[in-house]
Design a protein around this nucleic acid. Sequence first.
DNA 1: CCGCATCCAGGATGATACTG
DNA 2: CAGTATCATCCTGGATGCGG
Lengths: 106, 106
Amino acid sequence: MEAKKNTVEKICEMQTALDILGGKWTFLIIYALLDGKKRFKELERAVTGINTRMLVKELKNLEDHQILTRTAFATVPPTVEYSLTDKGRDLEATMKYLYKWTKDWM
Amino acid sequence: MEAKKNTVEKICEMQTALDILGGKWTFLIIYALLDGKKRFKELERAVTGINTRMLVKELKNLEDHQILTRTAFATVPPTVEYSLTDKGRDLEATMKYLYKWTKDWM
DNA sequence: CCGCATCCAGGATGATACTG
DNA sequence: CAGTATCATCCTGGATGCGG
């Protein structure tokens, strides 16, 4: 028989995840990347209201945690593409249900 | 044929939801209440690391948005119970997948 | 013009002490 | 027990600068 985890233990585990995902813009950035890779500027336009500084910061955070990958091209003007890793894409179900809730209740 | 919403529009919708749910502790509080109503002190113990001030604030925020209900009893010492509304309980699927992701990747 | 780094002011958060 | 009040600290937002 398995030792079933109680709520407190589960919350502690989710806390480590929310340390990464819990930023004000994190979910929206990931959601924006679900339908494919995007450039920095595209993300800035997609995530309405975010500012450059926070976008840089969140992207770096998500890259550090292997949720997305950054690819830079030495073009003029510079081109940087961001796309989700498997780990990041695995949040699709969570996002889908969060969006469903939004439509149902907001 | 329906006018299919694009990503930007969906993000804007989700933004209103995340204004409510996006707090640092919000998801954890809701998760703690998924298995039934809890008293203030029980929540404080369940959500490890939170402090009184933030718990009060988040609970008020979630109550204002009809995600949970607050019931006070005029006992000594005072008793206050918090429990999810239908709106709040509808986040269960989102939470479940978020926890699954946590277990899979953290 | 794009992708970012830096600087500064205001708001959010955390720790602690106190009340009914 | 269930909060309030207070203050130090961290984080966010907006403006600006700069190399490529």
